[in-house]
Write a protein that binds this DNA or RNA. Structure first.
Length: 603
RNA sequence: UGGGGUGUCGUCUAAUGGUAAGACAACAGACUCUGGAUCUGUCUAUUGGGGUUCGAAUCCCUGCACCCCAGCCA
């Protein structure tokens, strides 16, 4: 892979560069990230954050953090804190430029009054239902409100009384007087203010009228003297009204530019739907490690660097797209491969007794902390007679291409010895393998044989007597389908019932005893894991961030699919047989069947 | 004949009239005390049809497909 010394460009940067060249904004670049505090940020926001903060940074400009808090009924101060934490965690900073749309309510009110005075806005009595009817449809023009031509004086008076709280919610709205026949629905006399007798988290009960997005947002940008106002594609239709307000008000005019939002396979990127999962108890909270939220990814073990790198790699364009989860996973593996210390941890333990190893002997063996980074040094791991290995690492009847432990077979225990399986102990009732007896070759201490003999597999292991118990939570994709929101029925019908698997019998090497919350490790041959905040003195809890690339798992999966196909084609053959019997009255020759089964030698 | 957008390998993104490039994925091989990492190689793309041009992903015409807009949400 080539180096990242030249960060890729995109059409947004091209626009900024051109504006810089033509001195459009006196050489300034000033962006903003304007979340509504009505939920937690997700990785789609991370993309927007990387664009807003990243472009400002790259061109020596500034980026404001601005909470777009114009709808008190949906917003919650809890989110304000979380959003700031997430942005900081990603590595961006807004300095002293933390703003709120509500900071500008007074100014916005004045601007609204100005529009009224210039005959460009009016107070409308139509109720919600009527407004909808008057608006027409996308194919048919709307019709003008009967209140559209009220006198300026009356409008001023009514609007003032709206502000004073003389009317109930919904009794009146302030609307821009534009064009009820505009082909752009957004221009059909859009609402500017609505009455909401609601307590606002910052302005308290000062206001009972609140500005609508289209009116508020362009003014927020204008007031902050933003140069480039980046937003997602669904606001393309809003650009006309954005420009209209600023032009009519004759104020500083930033440029709105739209880009495609991020979609990721097997998950959803909608704050509202994510909220539904949280409130419905489908996940354990906004920071559930299965969630695509920044806090969820953080808890899962993702690093900010990996997410920023991901956002760089996916690029920015205007075509709608859905990014493969594999790229996100690649980014976190790439990062953690370099940084995460290696340790040995057995997730599903199988007891191994080394018959020829002395009863009470314990050896301290050297293990490399990170082969990618020698400066991380080495550590000691204890070896003794009774060990745990992974259940997956033993097969009584090894299939083709399985080259781990099997009866009579020799493998290496990492940093320790070659061992050979000499006996398999099974539960009499279930037939399940409960323990293995092996012998070790003392001459292979450290993991190499002086006679040069090779083994095909190296297994990780943990000394039973020295092991630390832990709970490990394995995560899989949240949904079973690539694009749950494209389905006709409820997206929740496609939640993956296997998205969380909790393992409680895990055995870790003793160096992990004092692992602290947030620490990330590579469990050798298993994946990257990090310590979950649920950990206590009594029990360590780990989250699996991502598995290692696993060709063996792929081989198994392919074999499984082959088996399914085989079953299926066997079924088809049966049908063919039946058909043949029915049609000819003769039996299908057994030799033919044999021929089929021979051609199918599996695995 | 509503309007606004978008169509490039399986996926994401470049190429701005001049060799269709990169990343991820996939596949094959090398190496390996992690079936990890690393390295090498292979595979696959311009939405259809016309036109302009020496030359078109790019310009023109014309189809097609998909997304967004009818919240007192943002």
């Amino acid at each position: 892979m080539n180096s990242m010394d030249s960060t890729p460009t995109n059409f947004l940067k091209t626009i900024v560069e051109n504006d810089l060249k033509t001195n459009k904004y006196d050489g300034r670049v000033h962006t903003r990230f304007p979340p509504e505090p009505n939920g937690y940020l997700h990785i789609g926001h991370a993309k927007a954050i990387c664009i807003d903060f990243g472009i400002a940074e790259q061109y020596g400009g500034l980026c404001n953090l601005r909470f777009d808090d114009t709808n008190p009924t949906k917003e919650n101060p809890e989110y304000i804190k979380a959003i700031q934490e997430d942005i900081h965690w990603l590595g961006f900073d807004w300095g002293d430029r933390l703003y709120y749309a509500s900071d500008y309510f007074d100014k916005m009110y004045e601007y609204a009054v100005q529009l009224i005075k210039e005959g460009k806005a009016y107070v409308c009595n139509l109720n919600e239902q009527e407004i909808r009817e008057y608006r027409g449809t996308v194919k048919q023009p709307g019709k003008e409100s009967p209140y559209r031509n009220r006198s300026i004086e009356e409008n001023l008076d009514l609007f003032e009384r709206m502000r004073k709280g003389e009317f109930e919610d919904g009794a009146y709205v302030l609307r821009a007087k534009i064009d009820m026949a505009s082909p752009n629905m957004k221009m059909r006399d859009p609402l500017i203010y609505r009455i909401r007798h609601a307590h606002h988290h910052r302005t308290g009960d000062k206001w009972c009228i609140y500005p609508m997005y289209d009116f508020a947002h362009c003014l927020e940008d204008s007031i902050e003297r933003i140069t480039h106002s980046f937003c997602t594609l669904e606001f393309e239709n809003n650009r006309e009204i954005y420009d209209w307000f600023l032009d009519e008000l004759r104020v500083y005019h930033p440029q709105q530019i739209e880009f495609a939002r991020l979609n990721l396979r097997y998950t959803i990127m909608s704050k509202r739907k994510l909220l539904e999962l949280v409130e419905g108890g489908y996940v354990k909270g906004w920071d559930d490690p299965r969630m695509p939220t920044i806090s969820g990814l953080r808890r899962r073990g993702y690093t900010p660097e990996s997410i920023r790198n991901f956002c760089e790699r996916i690029g920015v364009a205007k075509s709608e797209s859905i990014v493969d989860l594999a790229l996100l996973e690649y980014c976190i593996r790439e990062d953690l491969n370099k940084r995460a210390p290696r340790v040995m941890a057995v997730l599903r333990p199988l007891k191994v007794i080394i018959d020829n190893y002395p009863q009470n002997r314990v050896e301290e063996l050297d293990a490399v902390n990170n082969p990618e980074d020698p400066s991380m040094g080495i550590r000691k791991v204890p070896f003794s007679r009774v060990l745990y290995i992974e259940q997956d690492d033993f097969r009584e009847e090894p299939p083709k291409k399985f080259y781990r432990l099997a009866p009579g077979r020799e493998v290496r225990l990492r940093y320790a010895y070659f061992i050979k399986c000499v006996k398999v102990v099974k539960d009499k009732n279930t037939g399940k393998v409960t323990e293995l007896h092996c012998t070790y070759d003392p001459k292979t201490r450290g993991g190499d044989s002086p006679d040069g003999r090779k083994v095909k597999a190296t297994l990780h292991w943990v000394s039973a007597a020295h092991s630390v118990n832990a709970e490990v939570r394995l995560y899989d994709r949240l949904f079973t389908v690539e694009n749950p929101l494209s389905k006709k029925d409820d997206f929740k019908n496609y939640l993956n019932p296997k998205s969380l698997e909790i393992l409680t019998e895990c055995k870790l090497e003793p160096s992990l005893k004092n692992a602290s919350i947030g620490n990330r490790y590579q469990f050798e041959r298993k994946g990257y894991f990090c310590v979950d905040p649920d950990s206590s003195d009594k029990m360590l809890v780990f989250n699996r961030t991502v598995t290692l690339r696993d060709p063996w798992a792929k081989i198994q999966k392919a074999a499984e699919e082959k088996k399914i196909n085989k079953d299926w084609s066997a079924e088809m053959r049966n049908e063919a047989t039946n058909f043949q019997q029915n049609s000819t009255g003769e039996k299908f020759a057994p030799t033919c069947r044999d021929a089929f089964s021979h051609s199918d030698e599996s695995m």
